[in-house]
């Protein structure tokens, strides 16, 4: 269970960064760290001690395998997170062009 809690600590570090940092790029980095932690947790959940990777091979005796379903899910999730990061950085670059700063407290024209 320690591993799960360490995962959540990593998640919290990312959450702190995403919520408290003023720099736009740091916010995106924070979200990225949260996503890494969530992926890690998912694969950790699927681990079986003594298991091997879920690939058959003719010449080996296979006793038990780790859970393949979390791996399939995380494979899709990694790509989803990459897409969102791509879009966020594109918006951030254009924001710098228009506002001249990466400071989220200064990018505050819409108020009220």
């Amino acid at each position: 269970m320690t591993a799960y809690i360490l995962c959540l600590v990593l998640f919290s570090i990312g959450l702190y960064c995403a919520l408290r940092k003023r720099n736009v790029v740091k916010i995106i980095i924070g979200i990225g760290i949260m996503e890494y932690a969530a992926n890690f947790l998912f694969v950790l959940i699927g681990y079986r001690s003594g298991g091997r990777s879920p690939i058959y091979a003719n010449d080996q005796v296979i006793k038990s395998m780790v859970d393949p379903l979390p791996q399939a899910v995380v494979a899709v999730a990694i790509v989803l997170n990459l897409s969102v990061t791509l879009l966020l950085v594109a918006i951030a670059i254009k924001l710098y062009e228009k506002y001249g700063t990466f400071d989220i407290t200064k990018i505050n024209d819409l108020k009220g």
Partner: peptide, 9 residues
């Protein structure tokens, strides 16, 4: 954690 596909990805 025995997930080679994921490591490469």
């Amino acid at each position: 954690l025995k997930a080679p596909d994921l490591a490469i990805m």
